[in-house]
């Protein structure tokens, strides 16, 4: 089973029970607005927020738990990792604090503990412990309107398409998270365009890690190629210089001999 969350923004009343449950279950502290806030309600202490979007629509924001996450690919020490169970987690004991994951995330999700002297990257963990124990995340459990539900990704996708088919006027014909950047575990269906949740408006279907594949795979070849080229050039130039020197020496000898 691929754990996933489907959020139906048409059902969301904006009550924020999900955000409150998230704070309680993950033992997060109450946060206040900070200078470094993105402005979307997420912070190192708020892993889930409800965005008040246009047209009386509320959109729950959280980590998308991409199927092929950019943050995992970016992390130089492998602290950010995709677990076999599905959630993308950060192993803080490995983290060096480079914040490359924050730069790489196309959804701008990971947050930093800027106020701490020993800061870590923090974000939604899809309630990893609860899922592993066979339960569901705190947020989906808390939702009184069943606007956000937990389940198998394939089943939720089917459910999403069923809802859109049944109510074409209510929904835009698109499941957000189905295929962008290789697909995400958190899916949305909505009556409004949700691309404001992301950095770019036109996400491709390619997983972002593929953008670096070519460059990274050519590293050994570039290394060996450059080494070989430099070695070869050295050999050729060295040889040419030596031959020239010998020739010059020979000529000098030849010139000198007749004098004798």
């Amino acid at each position: 089973m691929k754990p996933a969350i489907l959020t139906d923004t048409t059902k969301c009343t904006g009550c924020s029970e999900c955000a409150i449950a998230c704070q309680r279950v993950n033992r997060l502290e109450r946060d206040i607005p900070r200078r470094w806030d993105f402005g979307d309600g997420l912070s190192a202490e708020n892993w889930c927020s409800v965005v008040d979007a246009a047209d009386n629509t509320f959109v729950r924001k959280q980590c998308r738990h991409c199927l092929d996450p950019a943050c995992v690919d970016a992390c130089p020490v492998g602290a950010m990792h995709k677990t076999a169970a599905g959630p993308v987690l950060c192993d803080t004991s490995k983290c060096i604090g480079c914040r490359y994951c924050m730069m790489a995330c196309p959804f701008g999700i990971p947050r930093y503990e800027w106020s701490n002297v020993v800061p870590y990257v923090r974000k939604c963990v899809l309630c990893y412990d609860r899922i592993k124990a066979g339960g569901q995340p705190a947020c989906t459990e808390a939702c009184p309107a069943k606007a956000t539900i937990f389940g198998d990704r394939d089943e939720l996708l089917a459910e999403a398409h069923r809802r859109i088919r049944r109510n074409p006027g209510k929904y835009l014909d698109r499941v957000w998270g189905e295929s962008e950047v290789g697909g995400t575990s958190v899916l949305y269906i909505s009556g409004i365009d949700l691309s404001f949740l992301t950095y770019g408006e036109h996400f491709g279907k390619e997983p972002l890690p593929q953008t670096t594949t070519l460059a990274m795979e050519s590293v050994p070849f570039a290394f060996l190629g450059m080494g070989a080229a430099m070695g070869g050039l050295y050999w050729i130039i060295e040889r040419r210089n030596r031959l020239q020197a010998e020739k010059a020496a020979g000529e000098a000898k030849g010139q000198r001999e007749p004098e004798k």
């Binding site: 130089p76 492998g78 060096i96 480079c98 914040r99 490359y100 870590y120 670096t212 594949t213 990274m216």
Partner: peptide, 26 residues
């Protein structure tokens, strides 16, 4: 100065993620 946890910089030598460009730069 820039790393949040600079005392962990040596982690690059034992925790590897060869797919990361930053790992290679390091």
């Amino acid at each position: 100065f820039d790393l949040g946890l600079p005392w962990n910089i040596w982690h690059l030598t034992i925790y590897w993620n060869p797919r990361s460009p930053l790992f290679e730069v390091g």
